[in-house]
């Protein structure tokens, strides 16, 4: 039978909670093994970053939704953290198969990678709850993308880099959620990545200095 928008949103929330019920909000044994395989063990940096970003997220959530909602924000961050570690493990397994390496020291010590991945996980959680506001009444609009970029002071260009790999690594994402992440991707490509403070301009400048690489395609007739 056709679902009302609120019923559809409640089902999406339930589905997300079922998927994440068996996930941990701390690194699993498999993930910890990847961390220990690194030239520089990133475990402490990762867990401290999650704690710090969790405080930022909860504070900003409370600012947007009301102070009484801080605990709800904290619960959503916990869900996002579980998704973050789950997707990270899936990504590393995939990279290990693809590259035949086990030492991901550079990647796992890259703050931009972790912040982007956590932001993407939280975007999934926030978008899932958007239909009901979590209270079954109001629709949240203030937490819409790119809100999470501002909360984490994350550059859109870096966030963009994890989207496709995130979708590949998490098979439980619904069609609607994949479309939402695609929408975020398009917003970044078409607008946010071209704002004045974007690192994209410096990268283009560097690329120009390195000289022409591939031949440009001839103009289409």
């Amino acid at each position: 039978p056709p679902q009302t928008p609120v019923r559809a949103a409640m089902n999406s929330i339930q589905q997300l909670r079922v998927v994440l019920a068996s996930a941990s909000d701390a690194p699993s044994e498999v993930l910890s093994a990847y961390f220990k395989n690194c030239t520089v063990d990133p475990t402490q940096e990762i867990t401290q970053r999650v704690r710090r970003l969790g405080e930022h997220f909860s504070q900003r959530f409370a600012q947007a939704m009301g102070q009484r909602c801080m605990e709800i924000g904290s619960q959503r961050f916990t869900l996002g953290t579980r998704l973050y570690y789950r997707v990270m493990e899936s990504m590393l397994k995939s990279e290990e198969r693809r590259l035949s390496v086990q030492n991901f020291s550079k990647l796992l010590n890259d703050s931009a990678f972790h912040t982007s991945l956590l932001a993407c996980a939280l975007e999934v959680v926030t978008a899932t709850y958007r239909g009901t506001g979590g209270f079954g009444v109001a629709v949240e609009t203030d937490l819409s993308f790119p809100w999470i970029l501002d909360v984490f002071q994350l550059v859109a260009y870096d966030f963009y880099k994890v989207i496709e790999s995130f979708i590949k690594a998490e098979p439980s994402l619904s069609r609607d959620m994949i479309k939402h992440l695609e929408h975020c991707e398009h917003l970044v490509m078409e607008s946010i990545a071209w704002r004045g403070d974007s690192p994209l301009f410096e990268l283009l400048h560097q690329a120009r200095e390195e000289g022409p690489g591939e031949q440009a395609e001839p103009p289409a007739t």
Binding site: M91, S94, E95, R98, L99, F104, K106, L107, D110, A112, F113, D158, K161, V162, E164, S165, I167, K168, R175, I178, K179, L181, E182
Partner: peptide, 21 residues
Amino acid sequence: VHDYHFGLEEGEGVSELFDCD
């Protein structure tokens, strides 16, 4: 079924995107 366009080529992944290859 979704119609998301996977743009990464063979041999491209998150390691390359973050200059960690």
